[in-house]
Design a protein around this nucleic acid. Structure first.
Length: 271
DNA sequence: CAAAGGTCCTGCTCGC
DNA sequence: TGCGAGCAGGACCTTT
């Protein structure tokens, strides 16, 4: 589920509902996520006031006075703020209770997500310290990509999906932005001109912006924070459209596994 | 049975 | 030959 737009949508949905409130109770129903949820979490959080919710890459940062709760939704995670009377759903693994009508629940069927506690500057945490720039940072530029890609022969799609190069470009938005920039996903990243990287930067930003404004692309199990099903199919030009006609040229779109991920593209438009 | 939106780790290969 | 960067593949886990 969560690519960057979904994570940002989650942040915007959750933050106003719980920011400024004090944690009443924490229940960890299942701690075996990608990293273990600390069993001390209830003792750490109870009584603390949530200052705000920030985002770095696909990590959500719940900032308390004493430290930061780092949350990642993996491939299937979601957060909702529900009434305490709402029954737990299957795979609702952690509950942070900010009051009877303000229970934050982490659901994560595949358990690829994480929820950990850190003190000090979260940017220095090992999970965050080596991440590349945010797509909307000035440091993410054509010159930056061109320089980072010099000499690299791997597929440009893998390159832009590498969080140490730039964060927040997952499989869907990699496909969409490469299509708009007319760059073939298998092209060696070191053999993309700076001018074409300029186009790619523009399109990555545009695609992410559109998706965030649309409330996030949702393909499967994203739930909106009010608990309503949030199914929303963003207008995707290539992702999931193998065999269907290219919106530009009409030729059938192709799918190919690149870096173990299904990659959709137009073999005529993208070079 | 394959595949699903993410990330980390290991071990191999290539080029200097 | 040795080294490091880059890269591919596997692992994590459950559901459809």
């Amino acid at each position: 589920m969560p690519e960057l737009p979904e994570v940002e949508t989650t942040r915007r949905g959750v933050a106003p509902l719980v920011s400024g409130l004090q944690v009443q109770r924490v229940i960890v129903h299942e701690s075996r996520l990608r990293l273990p949820v600390p069993t001390t979490l209830p003792a750490i959080l109870t009584g603390q006031r949530l200052e705000d919710v920030q985002r770095r890459a696909k990590y959500l940062l719940f900032r308390f006075e004493a430290g930061t709760l780092i949350v990642h939704l993996g491939m299937s995670g979601s957060l909702r703020v529900v009434d305490a009377a709402q029954p737990r759903l299957p795979h609702d693994y952690v509950e942070i209770d900010f009051g009877p009508r303000r229970v934050l629940r982490l659901r994560d069927p595949r358990r690829f997500g994480l929820m950990i506690w850190t003190t000090g500057d979260p940017a220095g945490h090992e999970l965050l310290a080596t991440l590349g720039p945010e797509p909307f940072d000035a440091g993410f530029s054509a010159a930056y990509l061109h320089e980072r890609a010099a000499g690299r022969r791997g597929a440009v799609k893998n390159f832009i999906m590498d969080a140490h190069v730039v964060v927040g470009v997952g499989n869907i938005y990699a496909a969409e932005s490469l299509f708009r920039a007319r760059i073939h996903p298998v092209r060696a990243s070191g053999r993309v001109s700076q001018a074409r990287y300029a186009a790619l930067v523009t399109h990555i930003r545009a695609v992410l912006t559109e998706a965030i404004e649309a409330g996030g692309t949702t393909l499967r199990d994203f739930l909106r924070n009010d608990g309503e099903p949030g199914y929303f199919r963003h207008n995707l030009a290539v992702y999931g459209r193998a065999g269907l006609p290219c919106v530009q040229c009409g030729q059938a779109l192709r799918v190919q596994v690149i870096g173990q991920r299904s990659s959709f593209f137009c073999a005529r438009c993208q070079r």
